Amino acid sequence: MSEASRNGTEPPKDIAAMFKRTRDLSDRIGALEEQKLGDRLAELALVVQKLADKPESQSGGVWNWSGMTPGQQASAWEYLLAWMETILKGRFPSSYEEMLRAGCWHEHPDVVEELTSLCTTWLWSYQDKEAGPLRTAEWLDRWLPACVRHVKLILENCSPQHTPPLQRHDRAMTQVEALQQRIAALKAQAAQPGG
């Protein structure tokens, strides 16, 4: 023991070491408190709760046409056709006309995929509960013009023999009627045993 320790002017080494460790811990706790981890943890808990409470997306997610049964395809065609006639044609007639001049668009799988994507991104942009003006602006500025470009490019090389009007009772069948016929055929296939 040193003379200062014996006289009581210097704390014992154990106490000095403990004091240093306590001061180091105090500094570390102060640094943690400055990070406001409690607030961050509360924010994270809210995000997790929001995700857990979130209902399934109205957009239905990604449509995989190749993995659908005939019944699912019929339902998807009905939905897509209704969306195209009410939303795309009704609200964006210039884009609709520019893209779909060729009456055979529904015979082109790549066009169907483009339009399906446009439909599901529209749902995400306009009808998702968390949608805001930026999603809408993105759909109008990015997804709609991209789809118009892609569909026009795909259909510009469609051969003339592929696009003759479908005949029914002395008149040309419209695109809608042709799709309705396709939907009916898919429903009939789905109703078959093993369909």
Rank of each mutant, 00 (worst) to 15 (best):
S2L: 05
E3C: 15
R6Q: 14
N7C: 14
P12K: 15
D14T: 02
D14H: 03
I15L: 03
A17D: 12
T22R: 14
D24S: 03
D24T: 01
A31Y: 06
E33H: 14
E34H: 02
L37Q: 04
G38P: 01
D39R: 14
D39M: 15
R40W: 10
R40M: 04
A42T: 02
L44I: 11
L44C: 13
A45H: 14
L46D: 08
V48N: 02
V48F: 01
V48I: 07
K50W: 00
Q58H: 13
S59I: 00
G61K: 02
S66I: 05
T69P: 07
G71C: 11
S75Q: 15
W77Q: 13
M84T: 02
T86W: 09
K89L: 13
G90C: 04
S94I: 08
S95R: 02
Y96T: 08
M99L: 08
L100C: 09
L100R: 03
H106G: 05
E107D: 03
P109R: 04
V112L: 15
V112I: 14
T116F: 03
W122T: 07
W122G: 06
D128M: 08
D128N: 08
D128Q: 06
G132Y: 04
G132V: 10
P133Y: 02
L134H: 08
T136H: 00
L140C: 07
R142E: 02
A146E: 12
R149M: 02
I154V: 12
S159P: 08
P160F: 10
P164C: 05
P165I: 07
Q167C: 10
R168H: 07
Q175W: 00
E177G: 03
Q180Y: 00
Q180S: 00
Q181F: 15
A184Y: 10
A185I: 02
K187A: 07
K187V: 05
A188V: 08
Q192G: 09
P193E: 12
P193I: 14
G194D: 09
